[in-house]
């Protein structure tokens, strides 16, 4: 694969990809996730637990960073650009099926068509949103011990532990993908991306245009709550 920054002649041509609000949402969510996963590791991995100690402090930071994780998302709903991108993430068109099929078969020949977000990013976003809700729910069952009578707490611990492990793997993959694509990272850092990159990675993305929610199309008014939870 050619390196994303190779079309040097077009390097100057930048395309707007993320608004300031969106970059702030991603940054604060990433920071809270790091805090939550980091304290989790120190509570859970014996070697780190022995090194760090301070169990009560770690539990407090873990619980609050986890609960606050949804706040940037909720505040972000005030931004129309964010709502438009949520809608893009939530809706799957026929081209997403082509993308997923090629990705699952590790088929590097077939073109993988994508809009502003590719199907992998969409699946990641949806799954992660659900997983965060499950972690919050099971976490609350474990923390507010009076919430449910007895047995459910052990079950909640079981789900919380195994899902945490799964999320660790998925987050590592997410970070790995980002590390492999400097232009994608630049998009979230500066808000704009190289035109050649956009045309190669996201050929169906109509970057000149406002998104569907920004247009406020009446045809879609019945589906108003953009994206999903």
């Amino acid at each position: 694969m050619p390196r994303p920054s190779e079309p040097a002649r077009r390097r100057t041509e930048r395309i707007h990809r993320f608004s300031g609000a969106e970059r702030w949402i991603h940054r604060s969510t990433a920071a809270l996730t790091g805090l939550c996963a980091g304290t989790a590791a120190c509570l859970y991995l014996p070697a780190l637990a022995e090194l760090v100690g301070r169990r009560h402090l770690l539990v407090t930071v873990h619980v609050w960073s986890g609960l606050l994780l949804v706040v940037p998302f909720l505040l972000g709903l005030a931004s129309s650009a964010f709502r438009a991108d949520l809608r893009r993430l939530g809706r799957f068109g026929p081209h997403d099926r082509v993308w997923l099929r090629a990705a699952l078969r590790r088929d590097r020949v077939t073109r993988r068509p994508a809009g502003k977000f590719n199907a992998g990013q969409k699946v990641y976003a949806g799954w992660l949103a659900g997983a965060v809700l499950v972690m919050a729910g099971t976490g609350m069952l474990m923390w507010w011990t009076g919430l449910v009578p007895l047995v459910r707490r052990t079950a909640a611990t079981f789900v919380h532990d195994w899902l945490a492990l799964t999320m660790g793997v998925v987050l590592a993959a997410h970070i790995g993908k980002a590390l492999a694509d400097p232009e994608a990272r630049r998009g979230l850092r500066t808000g704009s991306v190289d035109r050649g990159w956009a045309e190669r990675e996201h050929p169906l993305w109509r970057h000149g245009r406002p998104g569907p929610a920004e247009r406020g199309e009446p045809a879609d008014a019945d589906r108003a709550p953009a994206g999903s939870a």
């Binding site: 809608r87 939530g90 809706r91 068109g93 809009g115 949806g126 169906l204």
Partner: peptide
């Protein structure tokens, strides 16, 4: 973009 099945939800 933004059309199609609400699979995300």
């Amino acid at each position: 973009d933004g059309q199609g099945t609400p699979i995300g939800r």
